[in-house]
């Protein structure tokens, strides 16, 4: 069964003229899969735009609209979304989207409560309440997208709690907060892997692993690099990043072989190595604008180090691909 990659190869070797390329691509296209994909994208984009419109509408805080009208509008939307999800069934895409819409409308409702009653509460209170209130629907939804929405709300709640309460009170440093949020993402990734092994097929989409892995490594990467480059932070930041990187490397090389996930791990490792190289060169030679010879040598070394780090990454990826991706028969 030829694929689009084969079509590109056939064209690249001059066996398929450009004029017939589109016909060839159409012949190998999986029409049913793309029809399903298009419908889901249209549904997701439609719901996303509609909800963004509702959020903007209430953010405008229209003075002509009475408090009663505001509550009635949001609550009516909430009831319609919930009823729709109930009737459509949460095992169907439309039911899941309606339940996600209801979860987002809960946030709008909490924001309207804040507007009408001027509660002066910190923002984190809204997000904590939001995360708690929609948790039962998230648990019931059996939808990875719903979990992503809930995790984003939880992430905002925890980061705002840290920034508005724990850091000002001196109970936590900014770096520790960032490490904590990264560790939380890592925990969610580990739970996802365990759930998939237990047979929860609705979580098994490859994108859920990649999104959580990139979130984990991305959240831990910045504080680690900030420490390495001597901007801010504590030694725990690079330590946490390296531990997460090592665990992910072993997990997606040995326990759950996955080339795409391994590529993400190697990419973050290469970028971290470049930052580390910068610090080592700075300590050893320095980037002093007053000392021309040293500066030229330092920048030149950094260029070589960067090319070496990426070259090693490319080499590792080649070797990993041979092991993790079987050749097509």
């Amino acid at each position: 069964m030829p694929t689009l990659k084969d079509v590109n190869a056939i064209h690249g070797h001059g066996l398929l003229p450009g004029a017939r390329y589109f016909a060839a691509a159409s012949a190998v296209r999986d029409d049913a899969a793309w029809a399903t994909w298009a419908a889901r994208v249209i549904l997701a984009l439609g719901a996303g735009h509609l909800l963004a419109g509702i959020l903007s509408f209430f953010a405008y805080d229209w003075a002509d609209l009475s408090a009663f009208a505001k509550f009635a509008t949001v609550e009516a939307g909430l009831v319609i979304a919930l009823a729709g999800a109930w009737f459509a069934g949460i095992e169907r895409a439309i039911g899941q989207v309606l339940l996600i819409a209801a979860s987002i409308l809960v946030g709008v409702l909490l924001a309207v409560i804040g507007q009408v009653y001027n509660t002066d509460a910190d923002y984190y209170v809204l997000f904590v309440a939001w995360a708690v209130l929609i948790l039962p629907w998230t648990l019931a939804s059996r939808s990875a997208a719903h979990w992503v929405v809930w995790l984003v709300v939880l992430h905002l709640a925890l980061s705002l709690y840290g920034e508005q309460v724990l850091i000002p009170e001196g109970r936590l440093t900014e770096s520790a907060l960032e490490i904590g949020l990264g560790a939380l993402a890592a925990l969610v990734l580990a739970l996802r892997e365990a759930a998939v092994r237990k047979g929860m097929a609705w979580l098994a989409g490859a994108w859920t692993r990649i999104v959580l892995l990139i979130a984990t490594l991305g959240l831990l990467f910045w504080p680690a690099v900030a420490y390495v480059l001597d901007w801010e932070g504590e030694i725990h930041a690079p330590a946490a990043f390296v531990i997460a990187l090592a665990l992910a490397a072993v997990a997606y090389r040995r326990w759950l072989p996955d080339f795409a996930a391994s590529t993400a791990v190697i990419g973050f490792a290469a970028l971290f190595a470049i930052a580390l190289g910068y610090r080592v060169i700075e300590e050893a030679i320095g980037f002093d604008w007053q000392d021309e010879t040293r500066l030229v040598a330092s920048v030149g070394l950094l260029v070589l180090w960067s090319a070496a780090a990426m070259g090693l990454a490319a080499k590792l990826l080649q070797a990993l691909r041979r092991r993790l991706e079987p050749r097509p028969s």
Partner: peptide, 11 residues
Amino acid sequence: SWILMAVGAAL
């Protein structure tokens, strides 16, 4: 907000 809601409704 009207534009976004109109786009959402069309989709």
